[in-house]
Computed example of a mutant assay.
Amino acid sequence: MSARGTIRALVTASAVSGLLASGAGARTLDLADPQDAVTVSRKMGCSVKDNVPVVFHWTGRAYSRVPGEPDRHLFDVEGMNIRQCGTVTDPERGTGYRMVSRELMFYQDPETGAVLDRWTNPWSDETVKVYHVANDPVNMHPVYPVGAGGEPYAIPNAAVKGRWFSMPIEVPLFYRNPLGGAYQDYVGNKYHAMEIFDFSAEAETVLDGSTDTADAFVAWVRIADWLPWMKMGGRPGMMVLNATGRMLGGFSDLPPAMRERIEADYPAFTAPPPVDDRRPNETSWTYFKKQIDAESARPE
Rank of each mutant, 00 (worst) to 15 (best):
K129F: 12
Y153N: 06
Q108W: 00
M167N: 08
V66P: 00
E282C: 10
V77H: 00
N81P: 00
G149Y: 08
D117W: 03
S101V: 04
Y287K: 13
G237Y: 05
M247R: 09
V143C: 03
V221P: 00
D136F: 02
V130K: 04
D71C: 05
P152S: 03
A24T: 09
F174Y: 15
L20M: 12
G86T: 08
N242M: 13
C46H: 07
F251L: 10
L241H: 11
S22Q: 13
K129Q: 15
V218N: 04
L173A: 11
S17M: 01
V115C: 05
E295P: 04
V218H: 03
P255W: 10
E103K: 13
M194K: 12
T244N: 14
T270Q: 15
K231T: 04
M239Q: 07
A15C: 00
K190C: 11
A271K: 15
T120W: 10
D198F: 05
G237H: 05
T205G: 04
G5P: 00
T95H: 06
N51C: 08
P152I: 05
Y97E: 05
P67V: 02
N281I: 12
N139Q: 08
G79W: 02
L10R: 10
M239V: 15
G96K: 02
T87N: 02
M105V: 08
R278T: 15
T127Y: 06
W58P: 03
F288E: 06
F75C: 01
S200L: 03
D208M: 01
A3Y: 11
E204R: 14
A21C: 09
D276V: 08
F75L: 07
F165I: 03
G147A: 07
D71Q: 13
A148L: 14
T59R: 09
V138L: 11
V100Y: 01
G188Y: 10
E195W: 06
P256E: 15
D293M: 14
D208N: 15
W229A: 09
R261D: 06
L20H: 09
V77K: 02
F217L: 09
D36S: 10
R8P: 00
M1Q: 09
S47G: 10
